Simulated scan of single mutants.
Amino acid sequence: MIFDRGLIRRRLMRAAHREPSLFLLDYVVEDLCERLSFIKRSFTAIADIGTPAPVLAQALVRQYPEGKIVWMNPALPSDGKSFPKPQPYQQIVGDLEALPFGKEAFDLATSALALHYANDLPGILIQIRQSLKPDGLFLGCLLGGQTLHELRTCLATAESELCGGISPRVAPFADVRDMGGLLQRAGFALPVADSDVVCVRYQHLFALLADLRGMGATNSLEERLRKPTRRALFLRAAELYAERFSDPDGRIRATFELIYVSGWVPHESQQKPLRPGSAQMRLADVLPTKTYEPPKGT
Protein backbone atom coordinates (compact mmCIF):
# COMPACT_ATOMS: atom_id res chain seq x y z
CA MET A 1 0.00 0.00 0.00
CA ILE A 2 1.32 3.43 -0.96
CA PHE A 3 -1.31 5.72 0.56
CA ASP A 4 -3.15 5.78 3.88
CA ARG A 5 -6.68 6.07 2.51
CA GLY A 6 -8.18 6.74 5.94
CA LEU A 7 -5.81 9.66 6.47
CA ILE A 8 -6.68 11.04 3.03
CA ARG A 9 -10.38 11.02 3.97
CA ARG A 10 -9.72 12.83 7.25
CA ARG A 11 -7.58 15.49 5.61
CA LEU A 12 -10.08 16.10 2.82
CA MET A 13 -12.82 16.46 5.40
CA ARG A 14 -10.71 18.87 7.47
CA ALA A 15 -10.00 20.96 4.39
CA ALA A 16 -13.70 21.04 3.48
CA HIS A 17 -14.70 22.18 6.99
CA ARG A 18 -12.15 24.98 6.97
CA GLU A 19 -11.36 27.16 3.96
CA PRO A 20 -10.56 24.85 1.05
CA SER A 21 -8.03 25.87 -1.58
CA LEU A 22 -9.80 25.29 -4.89
CA PHE A 23 -7.85 27.36 -7.44
CA LEU A 24 -6.17 24.32 -9.03
CA LEU A 25 -9.42 22.35 -9.07
CA ASP A 26 -11.22 25.31 -10.66
CA TYR A 27 -8.55 25.40 -13.38
CA VAL A 28 -8.93 21.66 -14.07
CA VAL A 29 -12.73 21.74 -14.09
CA GLU A 30 -12.76 24.55 -16.65
CA ASP A 31 -10.44 22.52 -18.90
CA LEU A 32 -12.47 19.30 -18.52
CA CYS A 33 -15.71 21.10 -19.38
CA GLU A 34 -14.10 22.68 -22.42
CA ARG A 35 -12.98 19.25 -23.61
CA LEU A 36 -16.50 17.90 -23.11
CA SER A 37 -17.94 20.78 -25.14
CA PHE A 38 -16.18 19.45 -28.24
CA ILE A 39 -17.98 16.10 -27.95
CA LYS A 40 -21.20 16.44 -29.91
CA ARG A 41 -23.45 14.20 -27.87
CA SER A 42 -25.55 14.47 -24.75
CA PHE A 43 -24.84 12.51 -21.58
CA THR A 44 -27.75 11.63 -19.32
CA ALA A 45 -26.19 9.50 -16.55
CA ILE A 46 -22.98 10.98 -15.19
CA ALA A 47 -20.64 10.03 -12.34
CA ASP A 48 -18.08 12.38 -10.84
CA ILE A 49 -15.67 10.06 -9.07
CA GLY A 50 -13.56 11.18 -6.12
CA THR A 51 -13.27 14.88 -7.01
CA PRO A 52 -12.49 16.49 -3.64
CA ALA A 53 -15.14 19.26 -3.89
CA PRO A 54 -18.42 19.62 -5.81
CA VAL A 55 -16.96 22.10 -8.30
CA LEU A 56 -17.01 19.60 -11.18
CA ALA A 57 -20.44 18.23 -10.28
CA GLN A 58 -21.86 21.76 -10.30
CA ALA A 59 -20.26 22.47 -13.69
CA LEU A 60 -21.68 19.24 -15.11
CA VAL A 61 -25.17 20.26 -13.95
CA ARG A 62 -24.82 23.47 -15.92
CA GLN A 63 -23.43 21.68 -18.97
CA TYR A 64 -25.96 18.81 -18.95
CA PRO A 65 -29.09 20.21 -17.24
CA GLU A 66 -31.16 17.19 -18.28
CA GLY A 67 -28.66 14.68 -16.96
CA LYS A 68 -28.67 12.77 -13.67
CA ILE A 69 -25.37 13.47 -11.93
CA VAL A 70 -23.83 11.56 -9.02
CA TRP A 71 -20.88 12.98 -7.09
CA MET A 72 -18.98 10.29 -5.18
CA ASN A 73 -16.53 11.59 -2.61
CA PRO A 74 -14.67 9.77 0.18
CA ALA A 75 -15.15 12.57 2.70
CA LEU A 76 -18.55 14.24 2.49
CA PRO A 77 -19.03 16.29 5.68
CA SER A 78 -21.68 14.77 7.91
CA ASP A 79 -23.04 18.11 9.11
CA GLY A 80 -23.76 19.44 5.63
CA LYS A 81 -22.17 22.82 6.34
CA SER A 82 -19.48 22.76 3.69
CA PHE A 83 -21.56 21.25 0.87
CA PRO A 84 -25.17 21.98 1.92
CA LYS A 85 -28.18 20.21 0.53
CA PRO A 86 -30.35 20.26 -1.48
CA GLN A 87 -28.16 20.13 -4.57
CA PRO A 88 -29.06 19.41 -8.20
CA TYR A 89 -26.90 16.30 -8.05
CA GLN A 90 -26.79 13.24 -5.83
CA GLN A 91 -24.06 13.04 -3.20
CA ILE A 92 -22.81 9.66 -2.06
CA VAL A 93 -19.90 8.53 0.09
CA GLY A 94 -17.54 6.03 -1.50
CA ASP A 95 -13.90 5.13 -1.89
CA LEU A 96 -11.80 4.96 -5.03
CA GLU A 97 -10.64 1.47 -4.14
CA ALA A 98 -14.19 0.06 -4.21
CA LEU A 99 -16.60 2.07 -6.34
CA PRO A 100 -20.23 1.74 -5.18
CA PHE A 101 -21.68 1.58 -8.69
CA GLY A 102 -23.38 -1.15 -10.66
CA LYS A 103 -22.25 -2.29 -14.08
CA GLU A 104 -23.10 -0.09 -17.05
CA ALA A 105 -24.74 2.54 -14.83
CA PHE A 106 -23.41 5.66 -16.58
CA ASP A 107 -22.62 6.98 -20.02
CA LEU A 108 -20.04 9.51 -18.72
CA ALA A 109 -17.59 9.23 -15.83
CA THR A 110 -15.34 12.06 -14.74
CA SER A 111 -12.71 12.54 -12.05
CA ALA A 112 -10.62 15.58 -11.14
CA LEU A 113 -7.51 15.57 -8.93
CA ALA A 114 -8.28 12.29 -7.17
CA LEU A 115 -6.84 9.29 -9.01
CA HIS A 116 -3.22 10.10 -8.12
CA TYR A 117 -4.07 8.95 -4.56
CA ALA A 118 -5.03 5.45 -5.72
CA ASN A 119 -3.15 2.45 -4.40
CA ASP A 120 -4.29 0.40 -7.39
CA LEU A 121 -4.77 2.75 -10.33
CA PRO A 122 -5.18 -0.03 -12.96
CA GLY A 123 -7.84 -1.65 -10.79
CA ILE A 124 -9.75 1.60 -10.38
CA LEU A 125 -9.68 2.25 -14.13
CA ILE A 126 -11.16 -1.22 -14.66
CA GLN A 127 -13.94 -0.43 -12.16
CA ILE A 128 -14.67 2.86 -13.93
CA ARG A 129 -14.84 1.10 -17.29
CA GLN A 130 -17.22 -1.52 -15.86
CA SER A 131 -19.50 1.22 -14.51
CA LEU A 132 -19.87 2.71 -18.00
CA LYS A 133 -22.28 1.64 -20.73
CA PRO A 134 -20.96 0.59 -24.14
CA ASP A 135 -19.69 3.69 -25.94
CA GLY A 136 -19.49 5.47 -22.57
CA LEU A 137 -16.74 8.02 -21.99
CA PHE A 138 -14.27 8.42 -19.14
CA LEU A 139 -12.58 11.81 -18.81
CA GLY A 140 -10.30 12.61 -15.91
CA CYS A 141 -7.34 14.57 -14.62
CA LEU A 142 -4.70 13.54 -12.10
CA LEU A 143 -1.38 14.92 -10.94
CA GLY A 144 1.72 13.84 -12.84
CA GLY A 145 5.34 13.13 -12.03
CA GLN A 146 6.68 16.69 -12.26
CA THR A 147 4.31 17.86 -9.55
CA LEU A 148 6.05 19.58 -6.61
CA HIS A 149 9.50 18.46 -7.73
CA GLU A 150 10.92 21.64 -6.17
CA LEU A 151 9.38 20.85 -2.79
CA ARG A 152 10.54 17.25 -2.96
CA THR A 153 14.13 18.31 -3.69
CA CYS A 154 14.32 20.93 -0.95
CA LEU A 155 12.76 18.75 1.76
CA ALA A 156 15.05 15.84 0.89
CA THR A 157 18.15 18.04 0.94
CA ALA A 158 17.20 19.72 4.23
CA GLU A 159 16.38 16.41 5.91
CA SER A 160 19.63 14.85 4.70
CA GLU A 161 21.61 17.77 6.09
CA LEU A 162 19.87 17.88 9.49
CA CYS A 163 18.94 14.24 10.09
CA GLY A 164 21.45 12.24 8.07
CA GLY A 165 18.75 10.60 5.93
CA ILE A 166 15.43 11.20 4.24
CA SER A 167 11.85 9.99 4.73
CA PRO A 168 8.98 9.94 2.18
CA ARG A 169 7.25 13.32 2.18
CA VAL A 170 5.96 13.97 -1.36
CA ALA A 171 3.89 11.30 -3.11
CA PRO A 172 5.09 9.57 -6.28
CA PHE A 173 2.87 10.58 -9.18
CA ALA A 174 1.99 8.97 -12.50
CA ASP A 175 3.94 9.44 -15.72
CA VAL A 176 1.96 10.68 -18.71
CA ARG A 177 3.78 8.17 -20.93
CA ASP A 178 2.25 5.30 -18.95
CA MET A 179 -1.34 6.49 -18.74
CA GLY A 180 -2.39 5.59 -22.28
CA GLY A 181 -1.19 2.04 -21.71
CA LEU A 182 -3.03 1.82 -18.38
CA LEU A 183 -6.27 2.92 -20.02
CA GLN A 184 -5.81 0.32 -22.74
CA ARG A 185 -5.07 -2.41 -20.18
CA ALA A 186 -8.27 -1.45 -18.35
CA GLY A 187 -10.26 -2.13 -21.54
CA PHE A 188 -10.78 1.40 -22.86
CA ALA A 189 -10.77 2.07 -26.58
CA LEU A 190 -9.29 5.18 -28.22
CA PRO A 191 -7.20 6.06 -25.11
CA VAL A 192 -5.64 9.51 -24.93
CA ALA A 193 -3.30 11.04 -22.35
CA ASP A 194 -1.73 14.48 -22.42
CA SER A 195 -0.23 16.81 -19.84
CA ASP A 196 -0.30 20.47 -18.91
CA VAL A 197 2.27 22.03 -16.57
CA VAL A 198 1.06 24.83 -14.30
CA CYS A 199 3.54 26.96 -12.37
CA VAL A 200 2.17 28.64 -9.25
CA ARG A 201 4.13 31.36 -7.46
CA TYR A 202 4.17 31.84 -3.70
CA GLN A 203 5.65 34.34 -1.30
CA HIS A 204 7.48 31.57 0.56
CA LEU A 205 7.43 27.84 1.31
CA PHE A 206 4.95 28.15 4.18
CA ALA A 207 2.37 29.76 1.88
CA LEU A 208 2.68 26.73 -0.42
CA LEU A 209 2.26 24.35 2.51
CA ALA A 210 -0.85 26.24 3.63
CA ASP A 211 -2.35 25.79 0.15
CA LEU A 212 -1.56 22.07 0.21
CA ARG A 213 -3.37 21.77 3.55
CA GLY A 214 -6.32 23.60 2.01
CA MET A 215 -6.36 21.01 -0.78
CA GLY A 216 -6.20 18.13 1.71
CA ALA A 217 -2.97 17.22 -0.06
CA THR A 218 -0.39 16.99 2.71
CA ASN A 219 1.67 13.83 3.27
CA SER A 220 -0.54 10.72 3.37
CA LEU A 221 2.04 8.09 2.47
CA GLU A 222 1.96 4.85 4.44
CA GLU A 223 5.74 5.03 4.92
CA ARG A 224 5.68 8.62 6.18
CA LEU A 225 7.55 9.61 9.32
CA ARG A 226 5.09 9.18 12.20
CA LYS A 227 6.63 11.66 14.64
CA PRO A 228 6.33 15.46 14.35
CA THR A 229 8.87 17.13 12.07
CA ARG A 230 11.15 19.73 13.61
CA ARG A 231 10.47 23.27 12.50
CA ALA A 232 14.20 23.66 11.78
CA LEU A 233 13.80 21.26 8.85
CA PHE A 234 11.11 23.39 7.23
CA LEU A 235 13.09 26.57 7.86
CA ARG A 236 16.11 25.04 6.13
CA ALA A 237 13.92 23.77 3.28
CA ALA A 238 12.49 27.28 2.90
CA GLU A 239 16.02 28.68 2.58
CA LEU A 240 16.93 26.11 -0.06
CA TYR A 241 13.69 26.76 -1.94
CA ALA A 242 14.36 30.51 -2.04
CA GLU A 243 17.93 29.90 -3.25
CA ARG A 244 17.09 27.38 -5.99
CA PHE A 245 13.55 28.01 -7.19
CA SER A 246 12.79 31.71 -6.85
CA ASP A 247 12.17 34.43 -9.41
CA PRO A 248 13.95 37.81 -9.43
CA ASP A 249 11.13 39.31 -7.33
CA GLY A 250 11.79 36.73 -4.59
CA ARG A 251 8.65 34.65 -5.06
CA ILE A 252 9.13 30.89 -5.27
CA ARG A 253 7.75 28.56 -7.98
CA ALA A 254 5.74 25.38 -7.45
CA THR A 255 5.05 23.04 -10.37
CA PHE A 256 1.82 21.09 -10.82
CA GLU A 257 1.73 18.68 -13.75
CA LEU A 258 -1.83 17.89 -14.80
CA ILE A 259 -2.36 14.67 -16.75
CA TYR A 260 -5.63 14.56 -18.68
CA VAL A 261 -6.88 11.11 -19.69
CA SER A 262 -9.82 9.90 -21.74
CA GLY A 263 -11.08 6.62 -23.09
CA TRP A 264 -14.25 5.06 -24.47
CA VAL A 265 -15.90 1.78 -23.61
CA PRO A 266 -15.68 -0.33 -26.80
CA HIS A 267 -18.71 -0.27 -29.10
CA GLU A 268 -19.29 -1.48 -32.64
CA SER A 269 -19.98 2.08 -33.85
CA GLN A 270 -16.47 3.29 -32.99
CA GLN A 271 -13.70 3.69 -35.51
CA LYS A 272 -11.41 0.69 -35.78
CA PRO A 273 -7.89 0.42 -37.19
CA LEU A 274 -7.54 -1.10 -40.64
CA ARG A 275 -6.10 -4.56 -41.05
CA PRO A 276 -2.30 -4.41 -41.43
CA GLY A 277 -1.33 -4.51 -45.12
CA SER A 278 -4.73 -3.33 -46.36
CA ALA A 279 -3.61 0.17 -47.38
CA GLN A 280 -3.97 0.96 -51.08
CA MET A 281 -1.57 3.90 -51.25
CA ARG A 282 1.96 4.45 -49.99
CA LEU A 283 2.46 7.13 -47.32
CA ALA A 284 5.37 8.50 -49.37
CA ASP A 285 2.95 9.21 -52.25
CA VAL A 286 0.77 11.36 -49.99
CA LEU A 287 3.30 13.33 -47.94
CA PRO A 288 5.58 15.90 -49.57
CA THR A 289 9.25 15.04 -49.67
CA LYS A 290 11.42 17.18 -47.40
CA THR A 291 15.19 17.45 -47.55
CA TYR A 292 17.55 18.66 -44.82
CA GLU A 293 20.94 20.24 -45.33
CA PRO A 294 23.16 20.72 -42.29
CA PRO A 295 24.51 24.25 -41.70
CA LYS A 296 27.75 25.05 -43.46
CA GLY A 297 30.86 24.40 -41.49
CA THR A 298 29.42 21.48 -39.53
Rank of each mutant, 00 (worst) to 15 (best):
L283K: 12
P65Y: 03
R9D: 06
I8N: 08
L183M: 15
G102M: 06
Q146C: 03
Q87A: 15
V265R: 15
V61N: 11
Q127A: 12
N219T: 04
S78A: 15
L7A: 15
A114P: 03
V29C: 15
R282K: 14
A109H: 08
L76V: 10
D247M: 12
V286A: 13
R5P: 00
I2E: 10
L113D: 04
L121E: 04
D249K: 14
P134A: 02
G297D: 07
L209M: 15
M179Q: 05
S195C: 02
A189S: 15
F256M: 08
E257C: 11
F138D: 00
A210W: 10
C33M: 12
K40G: 14
V265H: 11
D95T: 05
T229Q: 10
C33D: 09
E66I: 04
S82Y: 00
Y89A: 04
A158I: 02
L235V: 06
T51D: 04
F23T: 14
S37K: 01
V29M: 07
Y64P: 13
R230I: 01
C141K: 02
A284G: 02
E268A: 15
A232M: 03
R11M: 15
G216E: 06
F138H: 03
P168S: 06
L233W: 05
I259G: 00
L132F: 12
F106H: 06
V261K: 02
D135H: 10
K68N: 07
R152C: 04
F43H: 04
